[in-house]
Computed example of a mutant assay.
Amino acid sequence: MTAVASSDGDPVVATLRSAGVGEVAPGSSLAALTTLRVGGPARALVTAEREADLTAVADVCRDHDLPWLIVGRGSNLLIADAGWPGIAITLGRGFRGVDIDGDQARLGAAEPLPTVAVRLADAGLGGAAWAVGVPGTVGGAVRMNAGAHGGEVSDHLVEVDLVRLRTGTRETWPVEACGLTYRHSDLPDDAVVVSAEWRLAPADRDTVREQIREIRDWRREHQPLNRPNCGSVFANPPGDSAGRLIEDVGAKGLRVGGAEVSTKHANFIVTSSGATAADVAGLIATVQDRVESTHGIRLRAEVVVVGAVGAAP
């Protein structure tokens, strides 16, 4: 991995700025863009506001042989302490929006899922109250087929609009082509979700609003919302609960450095001041080893690891 440059004299930064790709921040820390609040800087962070920004960044990455990284709300990212040697891209307000037409909604990729849940409820559309409990964006949710409380993206998705960074082309994929399974999609690694179309069912507004209130209350009671975390760390194995397995092996409260298995919910890892990505990765691996040793099940981490963090989940 090459060193991360932070100087405004970086020719990559100069090229990005001359291309007019939106806001460009050299050597920007990515920790603040993740809900774990750990990780190092990117060579440059670009806030894209339009699809042309994405294709321009793709050109710079190809010309300079640099990797790219798409960062939504960072709720499932673990970024290495050494940072990211290429260009990190976050989608700005130009990629937000909730446009509702009958039982269908066109959603911008940067739109937060909790906002989507409320907007759909206000429009009298049901089935997506679960989204209020997922601290991510539409784009990230499509990529990992996010879900909670018995619902997931694949229940609603009709099609998704993509920008391909390797070619700079725009594509529309029907849901059947996306390969959505439990917390997984077959979207290529260079595909940036820019919008998605969902179909929902008409529902009583007050009923859906009450579902949203109940989910919010449940989260406050059962999840460590007052501490940095990345949501559920592990996918549930078939027929079982990752949280139950972790608690069964006595790992609640287990610590590695500044990372700790939450005492409130065993499938959450929380961080404290001074925590590192290596701490989190080490704790993930330790929990996996304990569960596998006792139950013969290797828990699959939902967290996406970016860079070399020292202890791979």
Rank of each mutant, 00 (worst) to 15 (best):
G108R: 07
A109W: 07
A109F: 05
A109T: 06
A110G: 00
E111N: 02
E111R: 00
L113G: 01
L113F: 15
V116T: 04
R119S: 09
L120Y: 08
A121Q: 06
A123S: 14
A123P: 14
G124W: 05
L125H: 00
G126I: 11
G127F: 13
G127L: 05
A129D: 06
A129F: 00
A129G: 13
A129K: 04
W130C: 04
V132A: 05
V134C: 01
V134S: 05
P135A: 01
P135S: 05
P135K: 04
T137K: 02
T137N: 10
V138R: 02
G139V: 04
A141N: 03
V142F: 05
N145M: 10
N145I: 06
A146Q: 07
G147M: 09
G147H: 08
A148V: 04
A148N: 01
H149G: 03
H149Y: 14
G151S: 02
G151I: 07
G151W: 01
E152K: 12
D155W: 01
H156N: 04
H156M: 10
L157K: 00
L157W: 06
L157H: 02
V158K: 13
L162C: 12
L165W: 07
T167N: 11
T169S: 13
R170Y: 09
T172F: 03
W173G: 00
P174K: 10
P174S: 04
P174M: 05
E176C: 11
A177Y: 01
L180M: 15
T181Q: 14
H184C: 12
D186P: 06
P188K: 09
D189P: 15
D189W: 07
A191M: 07
A191I: 04
A191D: 04
S195Q: 12
S195N: 13
S195F: 06
R199K: 11
P202D: 02
A203H: 03
R205H: 13
R205N: 05
R205L: 10
V208P: 00
V208K: 01
E210G: 08
E210Y: 13
Q211H: 14
E214M: 13
I215L: 03
R216T: 01
R219M: 00
R220S: 13
E221V: 11
